[in-house]
Amino acid sequence: MTDGNRKSEIGNRDEGAPPLPVGPRLVESILLPVGTAAVLIAFWHAAVRLSHTDVFPSPLSVLRGVGELARKGVLARYIADSLLRVGAGYSLALVLGIPLGIALGWYSTAARAVNPVIQLLRPISPLAWIPVAIVLFGVTNVAAIFLIFLASFFTIVVAAMNGVRNVPGMYLAAGRNFGLSVPALFSRVIFPAALPRVLTGLRVALGVAWLVVVAAEMIAVNSGLGYLVIDSRNAGKRYDLVIAAMLLIGLIGLVLNTLVRQVERLRAVRWGFNAP
C-alpha cells in the first residue's frame, strides 16, 4: 500500500472495515484467476477427449461425481468430518503452541535449550509420524488428530517465539516507563506487538494442517475428504471421485486462507503486514 492510500483512510472511522478493492482491482482479483481456471479446465477436457483415456475422468464426470456424493448424503458429512479433525488438531496446536512460543521468546535460556529440539523435529514430514501415531493412539480418530496437531504445532511455536523476540526494545522501554507490571507488559505491549507475526504463523500452520488431512485420514478413519481420496481409489478405482475430493480439498483450503487473511486486515494488526 502506498503512503498516499494510507493518508486517504484517515477519515474512515468504521472500526475493522478494510478498504475494499473496487473497480479494476475487483476485476483483476476475481476475473483473472477464474479465467485461468477456465483455460485449465478446457485444456483438461480436451486432453481427456483427445487421448480417449478410460481411466482419467473428464471435468464433467468429476462434477457428476460430486453430484453423486451429494445425493448419497456423504459430501456434507465428509467435509464436516475433515474440518472437525483439522479444527481439533489445529486448535490444540494453537492453545499449546502460542503460550509455549511466547515463553520461549521471552526466556532466552529456555529457548536455547528447547529451540534446537524444535528445529530437529520441524522438518520431519507428518507422513513419517504415521507409524508413531498408530503406536501411540492405535488406528483411531485421535491418531489422525495427533498428526494434524504435529503438522501445525511447530510452525505456531516458532512464529510466536520470533514474534516476541522481535518486539522492538523501544516498546518495552515505553511500557516499563509507564509503570507496567510484567503481566501487564505481556498483555498490553508484548502480545499486541507480536500479534502480526503470530497471525502469519497461524495462517501458514492452518494451511499445513489442511494439507495433511489426506495423510491423517489414511489412518483407518472411515469418513472425510482424505478418506474419500484413498477409499475411491481402493474401492473400484473411482478416479472421478478421487479428483473430486482433491479439488474439494483445494477449494476449502482456499476458503480457509481467505478467511484468515481477513483477520490480518483488522486495523489493530494491519500495521504489521505489508499487503493492503
Partner: peptide, 20 residues
Amino acid sequence: RRPDPRRIFVFQERGVFPWL
C-alpha cells in the same frame, strides 16, 4: 534505580504503539 511513570522518556516517533 528504574524507570518511573513520574518521568517519561519520549523517543523519536517510533515509540508510538502501532496497534493502538
